[in-house]
Design a binder for these strands. Structure first.
Length: 426
DNA sequence: AACTAGGCT
DNA sequence: GTATAAGCCTAGTTG
């Protein structure tokens, strides 16, 4: 009898008889297949976008130089700091410092966005140059004869997540003015559809079970809007009185919990006073006593054992808990909170990939490239390509498989959608 | 190679 | 008094 199954049973979770090591061994060949399959991009769209954005960048460069009074390298943070804080004498009060001086990171610049016309232009310049240099320019150079991109997946991460490099297909833009356009240039082959399936709030569901938090378990079981529910709790109001802004704040609280976020961190994330952030967190823990207990017990366990584990036994050593430097200890304590959650979610996804690959390759045995296959894995999302005719049934199969690969103490929900490209399939 | 910045979950 | 939200990858600048 596997000790992990026993532990899971105590939490109301049913998991297959398999350990983290074995999951990794089983998912490896699946990853190799996915690398080989690759995903098609529309090179023409990439080129068009690159041209358009390069033009914008030129115009922005001229405007920024004019406002600065002279030419300088906009991509150089140190030159940028001189222009903003020494020459233009913009206020530095409340801005974070980097090792060399005042930070010019977007988060900081947003604080002084309306102090000078140059700031919005810089922010736009940064956004566009990122897209060109990291995506639009390099990716088309990497396609094969079928316009497909092939990444390399890895399993050597500290939490058990899968990573992707050369190129990284796990950080393709989706937000911002141009995000959708870029993601929309990841396309299905002719006669095929892309199916995207993502776990809905998988980490919150996992922590609800690991922590046995009654309030959270009830919300998930009732299919409630978890962020609105949290808002009602921390603001002490009824669900139907929750404003969009309160929901947004509650979402940040939920998000921060699994990272061991402090009042200061929450205050930064929401641009609110520290007191206010502290109040939200205090209210949260007074209602979610299970989560509060979980947080403390993982910190204690880390200190006792020197490591923490996920549900399937991925172990993370925490040597800094022995440090005499306080923030090193605190950093490892946050890792102790987060790793079991993030790692367990990763294991669930990997199990689903193994299962799904098995199902797809046995049910659709046609020997051709026109068969349903897994293409991408992005932490809580899988992307599958399937022939148009079978797309609907494959989508249902994907959803079914992902939702039932383990049985948590709450329902697992998978959002599924399909389209001719990755933006539509969302 | 270190630092800064920024893309994603 | 210092730092303060987990995990990744890539690109440009600087010395």
């Amino acid at each position: 009898m596997n000790e992990f199954i026993k532990k899971a049973e105590g939490l109301g979770i049913k998991i297959p008889r398999i350990t983290a090591d074995k999951i990794n061994n089983a998912v490896k060949p699946v990853l190799r297949k996915m690398e080989k399959a690759g995903i098609r991009i529309d090179v023409a769209v990439f080129k068009k976008l690159e041209n358009a954005l390069s033009n914008d960048l030129e115009i922005l460069t001229k405007k920024i130089h004019k406002l600065a009074g002279h030419d300088f390298n906009i991509s150089s943070p140190s030159q940028m700091a001189v222009v903003l804080f020494e020459e233009l004498k913009l206020q530095t009060e409340g801005l974070k410092k980097s090792q060399s001086g005042f930070s010019t990171a977007a988060n900081e610049l947003k604080k002084i966005e309306d102090k000078h016309k140059i700031i919005p232009l810089i922010l736009e310049y940064r956004e566009i140059s990122k897209l060109i240099s990291t995506y639009l320019k390099p990716l088309p150079l990497l396609v094969d004869e079928n316009s497909r991109l092939h990444t390399t997946y890895g399993l050597e991460t500290s939490t058990g997540r899968i990573n992707s490099n050369e190129p990284n297909l796990q950080n393709i833009p989706i937000r911002g003015k141009y995000g959708e356009k870029i993601r929309g240039a990841f396309v299905a082959e002719k006669g095929m559809k892309l199916i995207s399936a993502d776990y809905s709030q998988i980490e919150l569901r996992v922590v609800a079970c690991l922590a046995q938090d009654e309030t959270m378990i009830r919300s998930f079981k009732n299919g409630e809007d978890i962020h609105a529910q949290t808002a009602a709790e921390i603001f002490g109001i009824k669900m139907n009185e929750v404003t969009p802004d309160q929901r947004r704040k509650a979402k940040a609280v939920n998000f921060g919990i699994v990272y061991g976020q402090t009042p200061y961190g929450l205050s930064q994330a929401l641009s609110i006073p520290i007191d206010e952030a502290a109040l939200y967190i205090k209210n949260y823990f007074s209602i979610h006593t299970g989560i509060a207990k979980y947080v403390n017990s993982m910190i204690d366990l880390g200190h006792e054992q020197g490591y923490v584990e996920t549900l399937f036994g991925t172990r993370r050593h925490l040597p800094n808990l022995k440090s005499h430097i306080r923030f090193m200890v605190e950093a490892d304590e946050r890792i102790a909170i987060n790793t079991p959650v993030q790692g367990t979610a990763a294991e669930i996804l990997k199990l689903a990939m193994v299962e799904l690959d098995k199902v797809l390759s046995t049910q659709y045995t046609v020997r051709s490239d026109r068969k349903p296959q897994l293409l991408l894995t992005v932490h809580d999302e899988l992307v599958v390509e399937a022939p148009v005719k079978q797309a609907k049934e494959v989508a249902e199969l994907v959803q079914e498989t992902m939702e039932n690969v383990v049985t948590l103490c709450v329902p697992i929900e998978v959002n599924i959608s399909m389209g001719n490209n990755w933006a539509e399939a969302k």
